[in-house]
Design a protein around this nucleic acid. Sequence first.
DNA 1: AAGTGGTCTAGACCACCTT
DNA 2: AGGTGGTCTAGACCACTTA
Lengths: 227, 227
Amino acid sequence: MGTIGGSAKAETNYVRISNLLRTEILQGEIPPGTWLRMDAIAKKFGVSVQPVREALQQLEGEGLVEIIPNRGARVRELDRQRLIHNHEIGEALEGFAARRFSQEASGSDLRRLEKIQEQHDAAIAELDWPRVETSNFAFHVYINGHGGNEELVELVSRYYALTRTIQSTMGRPPSYAPRVLAEHHALLDAFRSHDADTAARIGSAHVRGGLEELLQMFDGASPAGSK
Amino acid sequence: MGTIGGSAKAETNYVRISNLLRTEILQGEIPPGTWLRMDAIAKKFGVSVQPVREALQQLEGEGLVEIIPNRGARVRELDRQRLIHNHEIGEALEGFAARRFSQEASGSDLRRLEKIQEQHDAAIAELDWPRVETSNFAFHVYINGHGGNEELVELVSRYYALTRTIQSTMGRPPSYAPRVLAEHHALLDAFRSHDADTAARIGSAHVRGGLEELLQMFDGASPAGSK
DNA sequence: AAGTGGTCTAGACCACCTT
DNA sequence: AGGTGGTCTAGACCACTTA
């Protein structure tokens, strides 16, 4: 019923639904902890409940959704501990990627990365926050993707995007912009001199610095002492 | 986290099926590239096709299975490139975990790890390969799990277990046992002296060494140049 | 043009929670 | 017990491949 006349492509319902839910979760439009009631989603998409179930199962496999058998599905909670654990994974992967980039990047790779950073610098100077986000994201994707390891890029992006949720909900501290700027340029320096150990150290510290800022906001927002 | 002991729980079919398929794939009983026909699996479990579909969607989210819309599901191929990419992720995560363990492990943590390594030593001396596997696995899980980051342990195990598939299919080179043994003991030394940089370096190199062995077997088994 | 096998719907069923 | 919402089955439907 109500077939959308399109002849463009045979996109299955479960693929469309999982894609849409994924971006909505990663962009924070559906906040952590939200219950995802299957019949409500099915109704919203004009389909039965089964393709919705399949989409949710896939997101559970990706770690974005938690399905409790016979109870329901919810967006996975993003508590203090999970914030820390996600950043540990990011710290490990970005440190590795920075090390490799410092070893393997050609002159034109470096120039390309510098161009991206110029965008980032300009966006910060103009206080254009959406553009700060996208250029920051592009900077890291370029480094992480250098070896052609898509799965690594995807893992980092998954954890990175999840934290952006909290940032855009809670705002950023004043230390954010100068810190990110300084650390990106320190990374570029290490890349230019092909200093692998320094690149790896800064790459990891960059993630750790982001975590500390987030925890400040997090602890500031939720009154301490609650157990 | 507490295990819920013995309480007779209502285990749903999709959970049972995904668990079984997962272990069969990770243990190499269903080799990479195998098509997973839904009605065949449904018949085998005595259920309809829908719970099978949900189990497969979850495994796709975990990266173990590839679902091609309107075509079917297959165990993801494990070609040379993916072998390399998986090990890169392992290298990053295990290097991180080794660094942290060297910084945070208490005396009793160290003694516990040494006990595990004694099991490993003995198993190698007796050429008891299944026990070599399990004690090797326990060694790494103990290090990786030290910070309580279950997701990190799971990620490493996922990539690690996948490579075991190939190892048990193709066999191990003679260099395997002495290399693993020497590297584990070098790690223990670094832990004992709380030498974080060395621990991280050896942890990463340990994974890289395993990759090189695997690639030797891999390239030896499939003659180069075949198109 | 037929065949194969994946996808989707409607409705029955059942686990768990609330009263 | 009654309610809510997740789970499962049977069968129709449809996309894609064979000839």
